[in-house]
């Protein structure tokens, strides 16, 4: 039931994503802009070389925050058009209605991340393959969580409130996680505030992995934060889909 329903929702969502060439092109180019236009500046600003290994993980996380964080826009639309009620009347598993969408988001993020990595390598990134793959896994786990959370918020907030709230919330979340430069470079107060951001630990861990340091404290903390974040977010998302229904 759950798998069949998730697959159906996933298939339906993927078809929409790849419907138009223009949409696919925008989805491919947009995430590369930060890397191409801001990356070279940041890479130089990192003291002591190894700039790209610091910058690329941050840009990956920035992409995740933007795409996954704003994933709930789709639900806002489905609420307004009555699609969501229609799906909720079917016997489909409530968790599947969420999971199918989140899996589509994951597919898109993997594709976009691959593009970012390819451009990163072209620009000068020199990271071990194992570190890059591990780093990707680190970014995808919280991404799925964030997408689920975004859906949960979109289901709870009045439809006209979600877009401004979410777009406003995402910017400080992104900046405080240290996506552009490591927060260890920040003044004390900013560094302290950023420690409240779960995704800060994820990007710190990714930077270690990209530098080829696997057995560090940051990696351990990053892993724990990613997994807990995903679990909490999925629970909240499923609850939101069940809300109110008998």
């Amino acid at each position: 039931m759950f798998i069949r329903d998730s697959a159906a929702v996933f298939h339906h969502a993927v078809r929409a994503t790849f419907r138009t060439k223009a949409g696919v092109l925008i989805g491919a180019v947009q995430p590369l802009l930060y890397l191409a236009l801001l990356g070279p500046l940041l890479a130089r600003a990192v003291p002591g070389g190894g700039g790209w290994e610091v910058v690329v993980p941050g840009i990956l996380l920035q992409l995740v925050l933007m795409s996954a964080g704003l994933a709930g826009f789709g639900v806002v639309f489905d609420r307004q058009t009555g699609v969501l009620e229609r799906l909720r009347v079917t016997p489909a598993s409530r968790a599947a209605l969420l999971t199918g969408r989140v899996l589509r988001d994951a597919l898109v993020l993997v594709a976009q991340s691959a593009l970012i990595l390819a451009l990163g390598f072209a620009l000068g990134l020199r990271a071990p393959v194992a570190g890059v793959l591990a780093g990707l896994a680190f970014v995808l786990v919280p991404a799925l969580g964030l997408a689920a959370l975004s859906y949960a918020v979109a289901l709870r907030l009045p439809p006209e409130v979600f877009p401004p709230v979410m777009t406003t919330a995402i910017v400080p979340l992104m900046l405080l996680s240290g996506v552009f430069l490591p927060m260890s470079m920040a003044p004390g107060w900013l560094d302290a505030v950023s420690r409240a951001m779960p995704l800060r630990y994820v990007v710190d861990a990714m930077r270690d992995l990209f530098a080829g340091h696997y057995a560090t404290g940051s990696v351990g903390i990053g892993l724990a934060v990613s997994v807990v974040f995903l679990a909490v977010a999925l629970a909240a998302g499923t609850r939101a889909f069940q809300r109110e229904s008998a």
Partner: peptide
């Protein structure tokens, strides 16, 4: 059951 909503339900 089937339920046809007031105001439609198709994307």
């Amino acid at each position: 059951i089937g339920y046809v909503r007031q105001g439609g339900s198709a994307d």
